[in-house]
């Protein structure tokens, strides 16, 4: 048994692995810097109790925020590449708003951050994050079921 947030994060990693631009370069909770680009990192953010909890007797509902960070290095327009990645992430995440999980109510885009563009290296580099809000439920006695 695993925390349902963990199951969701692993599912998101699976959904985002193999996209046209970023391919298999997808990691969760990346600690070390990226050296193969373009790439994605998936980070867990807030996982807060939802107001809907009051309406459900035996279930606890939560809103999990997931940040998907894209990294690129290109001599082309970095915003164009970041937007292509963002479109691919959006399509993969939106194909099924439950992410294929029975305990997920909804997975919705919160938004995309302003790109950070740097020129310190021999190729321009940039990063941008898209935030997702995933609403899910688990029992009041266990986060794993």
């Amino acid at each position: 048994m695993t925390h349902r947030a963990e199951t969701i994060l692993e599912t998101v990693k699976t959904l985002l692995t193999g996209l046209t631009t970023t391919g298999i370069r997808v990691e969760r909770a990346r600690v070390w810097p990226v050296d193969e680009l373009p790439a994605l990192s998936i980070f867990k953010s807030d996982d807060l109790r939802s107001d809907e909890e009051e309406t459900l007797d035996d279930q606890f509902t939560r809103d999990l925020t997931i940040n998907v960070q894209a990294y690129v290095a290109t001599v082309d327009n970095v915003e164009t590449v970041l937007n292509a990645i963002a479109a691919e992430v959006f399509a993969a995440m939106s194909a099924d708003n439950t992410l294929g999980l029975g305990f997920v109510f909804n997975a919705l885009l919160i938004g995309e951050t302003e790109p950070i563009i740097e020129r310190t290296q021999d190729i321009p580099i940039a990063t941008m994050t898209s935030g997702w809000l995933v609403s899910y439920q688990h029992s009041k006695t266990s986060a794993e079921s």
């Binding site: 810097p33 310190t120 290296q121 021999d122």
Partner: peptide
């Protein structure tokens, strides 16, 4: 010069 660089969590060369 082609030195190691890490910026916005991306590694590369500063030349």
């Amino acid at each position: 010069d082609s030195n190691f660089d890490e910026t916005i969590d991306i590694t590369g060369r500063r030349v």
